[in-house]
Each structure stands twice: as C-alpha cells, then as structure tokens.
Amino acid sequence: MGKYLVMIYDDEAKWAADDGSVMEQNHKNHQAFAEANGSAIRGGGQLDGSETATSIRADGNGGYVVTDGVFAETKEVMGGYYIIEAADLDEALAIAKQVPSPTGGVEVRPLVNGG
C-alpha cells in the first residue's frame, strides 16, 4: 500500500465563463466520487483561484523573495487535490480516472516511502 497525491488541473478561463451550472454539477460529481471511493481517500480539498497564489523562493543569501502568482505559469493550474491510498499504481490510476476535472485533467504522484 502507498499514498498518492492526485492533483486536479483545470483551465480557470473556462471556469470564469461558467454561469454557475458547471460548478454546481462539479460539486455533485465530487460528492459522488468521495462516496464511491471513501475507503481510499485520506484527504483532499479545493484551492482558491490562482490569483490568490503567493510564491516564495530562497534568494540564495539566506533570505526569501516573495512574489504574487503561481510558481510556474501554465494554462491549466492546480485547483484541488486528493490524497488516496492504493495497493499499487494501477489501483491509484483507476481511482484517479474517476476524479472530476471537467476542464483539464489530473496528475498522480506517489508520496515517498508510501507516505
């Protein structure tokens, strides 16, 4: 058994164009996903928009540079995550395929040493 982080990537521009109906359906889909996979889910949450992100980089002299914005600029940004526990990658991928991500997709990464 090991733990995997499932990162949900979505296109925020598409969400901005939503009149609320897609969002509502998405909430229902996440509830259904959580009910169906409750025994594997160890955590998760929805992130606020990327405009709320703050990035911090070490400046190499013992200090920090704090900047507004996400760490890496991409079209799809991480909007939420789940931590799941699975026997192996195949089982983790089978669960991750069910994660709702209507305008993007998900990335699956194992936690080191099984989390």
């Binding site: 026997a87 192996d88 194992p110």
Partner: peptide, 11 residues
C-alpha cells in the same frame, strides 16, 4: 519501483 507499477496481469 517508486510509483508502484505492479508486477501482475491487469484486471
């Protein structure tokens, strides 16, 4: 080994 790709025949 790090992601746990299983050594088995798929479902």
């Amino acid at each position: 080994s790090r992601t746990g790709i299983p050594y088995r025949i798929p479902r």
